[in-house]
Simulated assay, not measured.
Amino acid sequence: MEKYTSCKKAIEHCISNKYFAVAYLCNEEKTMNIHIHDCYEMYFSISGGKQFLIDNKFYDIDSGDLFVINQFESHYLTKIDQMVHERIVVSIHPDFIKALSSEQTDLATCFTKRSQGSAHRLHLTAEQQKRFQYYINKITSVDNFGGDIIEKACFMELLVMINNIYMETLNLGSNVSDYKYNQQVEQIIQYINQNICEPITIEYLAKHFYLSDSYICRIFKSATGTTINKYITARRISIAKSLLSSGTSVNEVYSQSGFNDYSNFLKAFTKAVGVSPKKYALYSNS
């Protein structure tokens, strides 16, 4: 399997082939804006870095951290600047994981089992980090006879390992509240998420929290790496994708996800996801 040096190209390959793709990244690729894509993601940090905003949770990134993100969760990596930040990003099509799973073993558990307060980050031990990189190296290096079978078998073993770590973490309860924010920004994010279906403007938020427009924008961008409006839009798109995948009609979805009219919803959704809400609904429920 090819090891990509661009996360965007890996995602495109994953989605177009309904398979999985591996990207090895340092600091060459420009960080994407807050985004959502139609594949699962495993993000493994080799050298540590700055911070990760995933939905309404904000994490510091340490060496050896593994983040598991599903196709409905918006995420954004804060600006890396000139810092060397080695990481491995594995993009996985949901249909591919479904095909690999059995009645006894759902390999998508680490991406889909989300309880309130559970985190996206797994702290891998030194041995687990070595094992993760061993599987990735084997997957991206086999090219002889039977390579496709070895590639798939290694990937399945990797998924089994990650799911076991994830479920052990859930059982221990050690990933609850494994994230943090600036206290003011935490209150702002909490308010946005509790009122995401209501009209929310910067002016309203500033008035609600007794702050100036410029100050609330500045502290939010400083803490999260993105703007308030981009965050609100990404959260609404995330909710809309989830609703469409569950069979809710397009006419109901745009209001339930907080968009004030269909034209705004259509424009924002198509720009973020790449297809119209109707096409996404047809694809998700086919």
Rank of each mutant, 00 (worst) to 15 (best):
S238A: 15
N195G: 00
Q184F: 10
S212H: 04
E203S: 12
N171K: 14
V185I: 00
N171C: 11
I165S: 11
F145E: 10
Y179M: 04
V142W: 05
V185W: 01
Y204A: 11
N195D: 06
E157G: 04
I219H: 06
I239A: 03
H208E: 14
L244P: 06
E168R: 13
H208T: 13
Y210S: 11
D178V: 09
N175M: 11
Q183A: 06
I202R: 11
F209V: 06
Q194K: 10
I228Q: 06
F145I: 14
L170V: 14
M167S: 09
K138M: 08
K180A: 14
V160G: 03
Y204N: 04
K180N: 08
N164D: 14
I239Q: 07
D148L: 14
Q184D: 12
S245N: 02
E168Y: 14
S238K: 08
V142G: 02
E198C: 12
Y191S: 06
Y231D: 05
S238N: 05
I150Q: 09
N175K: 12
L211H: 04
M167H: 00
I165P: 06
I232F: 05
S242G: 03
R218L: 12
I219C: 00
N182W: 01
A153K: 15
Y215M: 12
G146Y: 05
Y179P: 05
N193L: 02
Q187H: 09
K241Q: 11
K221I: 00
E186R: 02
A240C: 03
V142C: 14
H208M: 07
L170I: 15
A234K: 09
T233M: 13
L159Q: 12
Y215V: 03
N229R: 00
I239E: 12
A223D: 09
I149L: 12
N144W: 07
L172R: 13
E151V: 08
Q194S: 08
V185S: 00
K241D: 03
N163R: 07
D213Q: 07
T233R: 13
S245Q: 05
I196L: 15
